[in-house]
Design a protein around this nucleic acid. Structure first.
Length: 483
RNA sequence: CGGGGUGUGGCGCAGUUGGAAGCGCGCGGCGUUUGGGACGCUGAGGUCGGAGGUUCGAAUCCUCUCACCCCGACCA
């Protein structure tokens, strides 16, 4: 026990210093490491495997809606990026530029894409002549670069991995439908696969995507400081981009029309979300559905004589579980079992199986859950049947715990003073009526650093009074500090 | 860009008045160990961020410089 305490002390306490805890967990669990380039991180195999599992599930869902994957270039000529006025204004401070290629100065600088609307839309303009060419439904998995001043592993880095979907439609209604559909895909993915509950809603004018007609978002609450994390966004771009990039077509009636676009993205900041929502003082707690390793087997023996029997049982268990779970056997003989227990808890593996002489004698294994620390003995014969059930239970348990955290730390407030106190105390989300004026929004942001995370789809029946100015307000919004 | 801080083996750090570069962890070898981060012996690994200066002598003092971290400003 004293050894355990000593070990745990090496990780900062979640409640005590969450930011430090986060940095330490990312590094010690071998998700990512610092790189020689400021503001960027190297994603290590364990972290990348987690991202790959997320990708696979999200990619499948995106394709089920009829979207195909493609790839567009990393570079965007300056003149193209600057075509849409709001778009360039919004992104200008974060764009990295290539001004030289080989030994020659470029005649026109190239932007390293901060997002790809400006390189994709000109291509759509070439491909669209008729309403019969629409819709275009394309997604790409790539990385983009945004010159962030305050980077943070996974959550905000100079280069980050994501998917960006871009569609073109004949009507605004169809574009709106697609925008909402993809937000729902994100909601389902994040809640089902990552066990992270979210609040879906719309962004305010000041928070929407640069160049968009409207932006929708799913907002999640992180552990520790209970700040918000924008976890996926879907934009209805209207015909802004269609007009400036000339995506023109003839409709059924032979009339010239501009196409309506959408774009939507979800990034590997969700790796950060999984860390912050589920993690505890022992480290990560990965949702089984995306965990790179769902079941880790730790063989234990004292004498060489015991080793043979243990290893035979380990092989038998592994073979039985391979068809139903992602299993890893930790055969390292330079680490003690106790060391391995702590290591795999740090890395968030949902289920650990201990197989030692005592287990072999009884034809059973000792199973330990990462979420509850509950220990139980299960006969080897029953294991393959029980594991999927237990993994499913852990997934549900994580979602329930995160939902509880969100509910318990979201409070309806009707006084600005209370909002100020809550923000200052890192008390979570505050739900309040808002009149809709940018002035009230800006004032709260300036005075408290909290922003309107979204205007939730779910609204009360009755109107109320704006928290800030007291005018009549038709809707409630979620106020919170955000990463 | 403003304020603060840190640069010494892979990591974390100590280094007093300027006088032989150290400690813990980790790493290699050998042996004993293994049910909640084992232990012994032994070994490898450093132009002290960089440049210049002061001095008989600089990790230490001075000047300049670079990098990174934290706080703030900024952040679809």
């Amino acid at each position: 026990m004293s050894d355990e305490r000593k070990y745990v002390e090496e990780l900062s306490d979640v409640e005590d210093d969450f930011d430090r805890w986060y940095v330490e967990v990312v590094r010690r669990a071998e998700l990512a490491d610092e790189s020689p380039v400021r503001g960027t991180r190297v994603v290590r195999p364990y972290g990348f495997a987690l991202w790959e599992n997320m990708q696979a599930e999200l990619d499948r869902r995106i394709k089920e809606t009829g979207v195909q994957n493609a790839y567009f270039p990393l570079f965007i000529p300056k003149s193209m990026l600057e075509r849409e006025a709001e778009h360039v204004e919004g992104f200008a401070p974060e764009v990295a530029w290539v001004t030289r290629g080989g030994n020659k100065e470029l005649e026109e600088p190239w932007a390293v894409r901060p997002t790809s609307e400006a390189i994709i839309c000109p291509m759509y303009a070439r491909w669209v002549q008729s309403y019969r060419d629409l819709p275009i439904l394309i997604n790409q998995w790539n990385s983009v670069v945004r010159w962030e001043e305050r980077p943070r592993a996974f959550l905000r880095s100079l280069e980050f991995l994501w998917q960006e979907g871009h569609t073109a439609h004949a009507t605004l209604e169809e574009a709106e439908e697609r925008t909402r559909l993809m937000l729902e895909v994100y909601r389902d993915f994040v809640e089902t696969e990552l066990a992270v509950p979210v609040i879906p809603g719309r962004k305010t004018e000041s928070e929407k995507f640069a160049g968009a007609l409207r932006t929708y978002t799913i907002e999640a609450m992180m552990g520790g400081k209970k700040w918000a994390l924008q976890s996926g966004t879907s934009h209805n771009l209207g015909d802004h981009f269609g007009r400036v990039f000339g995506i023109e077509f003839l409709d059924r009636n032979g009339e010239r029309r501009y196409a309506f676009n959408t774009s939507w993205g979800l990034s590997f900041r969700m790796v950060g979300a999984v860390i912050m929502v589920h993690g505890d003082d022992r480290g990560l707690k990965l949702p089984p559905r995306v965990a790179p390793i769902q079941v880790v087997i730790v063989p234990i023996w004292r004498k060489e004589a015991e080793r043979e029997a243990v290893e035979a049982a380990v092989d038998r268990v592994r073979d039985a579980l391979l068809p139903v779970a992602r299993v890893f056997v930790d055969r390292r003989d330079d680490k003690t079992p106790g060391w391995k227990f702590n290591e795999w808890e740090l890395k968030g593996v949902p289920v650990r199986l201990e197989i030692g002489p005592r287990d072999v004698a009884n034809d059973q294994v000792t199973l330990v859950r990462r979420d509850t620390h509950e220990k139980q003995s299960i006969s080897i014969a029953d294991l393959a049947g029980r594991i999927p059930e237990i993994l499913g239970d852990i997934q549900a348990n994580l979602f329930a715990a995160a939902s509880r955290m969100l509910a318990e730390n979201t409070v309806e407030v009707d006084s600005y003073d209370v909002l100020k106190e809550r923000v200052a105390a890192n008390a979570g989300f505050s739900r309040a009526y808002w009149c809709g004026s940018a002035a009230c929004e800006e004032r709260v942001k300036a005075e408290t650093k909290a922003t309107i995370r979204c205007i939730p789809f779910e609204q009360p029946e009755t109107p109320g009074r704006c928290l800030v100015c007291g005018e009549e307000a038709q809707q409630q919004v979620i106020w919170a500090r955000a990463y």
